[in-house]
Design a binder for these strands. Sequence first.
RNA 1: GGCGGCAUAGCCAAGUGGCUAAGGCAGUGGUCUGCAAAACCAUUAUUCCCCAGUUCGACUCUGGGUGCCGCCUCCA
Length: 486
Amino acid sequence: MTISTYNTRTGKKEPLATIKENHVNLYVCGITVYDYCHLGHARSTLVFDMIVRYLRYRGKTVTFIRNFTDIDDKIIKRAAEQNTTTEELSNRFIQAFHEDMISLGNLTPDLEPKATEHIPEIIELIETLMAKELAYETEGDVYYRVERFPHYGALSGRNLDDMMAGARIAVSAKKENPMDFALWKSSKPGEPTWESPWGPGRPGWHIECSAMSKKYLGDTFDIHGGGKDLIFPHHENEIAQSEGASGKPFVNTWIHHGFVTIKDEKMSKSLGNFLTIREMLERYPAEILRLFVFSAHYRTPLDFTDQAMHDAETGLDRMYSCLAAVAGLPQSGSGASAIGKKDRQKLEKLEERFCQALDNDFNTAQALGHIFDVVKTINKITHHLPENPGQEDLDLLTKSSNTLKRVGEILGILQQEPVAYLQAKQQKVLASLEISPAEIDNLIAQRNRARDEKNWDRADQIRAELLVKQIEIKDSASGTTWQVKI
RNA sequence: GGCGGCAUAGCCAAGUGGCUAAGGCAGUGGUCUGCAAAACCAUUAUUCCCCAGUUCGACUCUGGGUGCCGCCUCCA
């Protein structure tokens, strides 16, 4: 089995070929740190978290780099507004980002380089471009000469003439061509600056990714990722910079994920229709958010609704209930096997089917379908298990439950103790209710007395009373149990 | 205007040139129960936006149309 990925560069799904066998060098564009991250950023980190986990699961070693852009116009502006330094501001939001990552349960990249810590590398790269006449200096600014780079626009499928026709580019007298972009910007008084051959200034937006990826991964590496909105101009410009300087191919595989939308509109800072990760996690546990994000393929838009979150939550409860049921089975039995061939196969093939789905361009939606399919099968089996089950069947159920947890780990779900998960959930809701367990037990005792007297009206009345307070009761041969209605 | 993507049941969402069009949520009928709940069983798209073409055969390929979204300015 080979892993195939959709490559933006070629526009096709293709087998993932790496430069070094069984090693993947991955560079993901991180955030510009001037504010809290929203759900769209969360999707980005979750998607690459899953990809890294899966590649490692499939036996590859992965060098995972995600940068911080900690100097740019927005940071300068925001710092001025808050009467602080760009350094303080960016450090504050890097810290916030790290907190968010921990809350989301994401792995930490192997390296999280910052632009401001790579100024010498950036200057060196610009000097190379200057020497090749791919860049020019005007009044302390340095621009990239896009007309000199023959493949400019190849990644995003545009050409310079079309883009100029679009004419949405602010024409600057300093530029030879309106499409030329800044590599180095001269600084205004009061702005953070670094010394350079072109005078005091700071790097442009795109150059740090070229400089840092080169430093840590070399001129050519395996996968470069980010949101679809980075294809143009950010990644296009990175290619122009890196390939212009090195003369070698920059990246073999480009992976771009889709946006999170609200009411089918892109969630973005400029539209103001965003929900920060923090706000989100106050409302829903991270595991539910992960399930929601992975319920759609990473390249399609993902529309956020409370209904969708509710669906994810119900689905997760279903998975944990299934795991809890298996955990509650006896350890041993001496009966005959009762699991049919078809069901047995379904359970045994889970891992294989899960991998097939993820091999196919990380199709998490399909993979989750297989998980639910197995959950359904396990539920069916446990429900029909005879009083003295077969040892073989018990072993298969335990094994399947472990497989569920193992594949769940790739998505960052199902890692809690199932019984504890369900209890914690009950308790959380219970804490917000206006009834104590003692009161509930008291009412159930009263109801059971009524039932013994066959006073069904009274019994039903108590049950209805409890239900109003979100308490559901279950009568069974071994007594009455209750749970919070979720 | 240029470039790209999407359109599958009430909602969400996979998928394939021909075998039953996954799965989740919601709904309905049944088993169980004093009645319920939970769980389980069954059931819910003769059909995949519309039109034309290619093909023995298309939802899947080609062309056209419609609608929605994104990028072209900062953006994950």
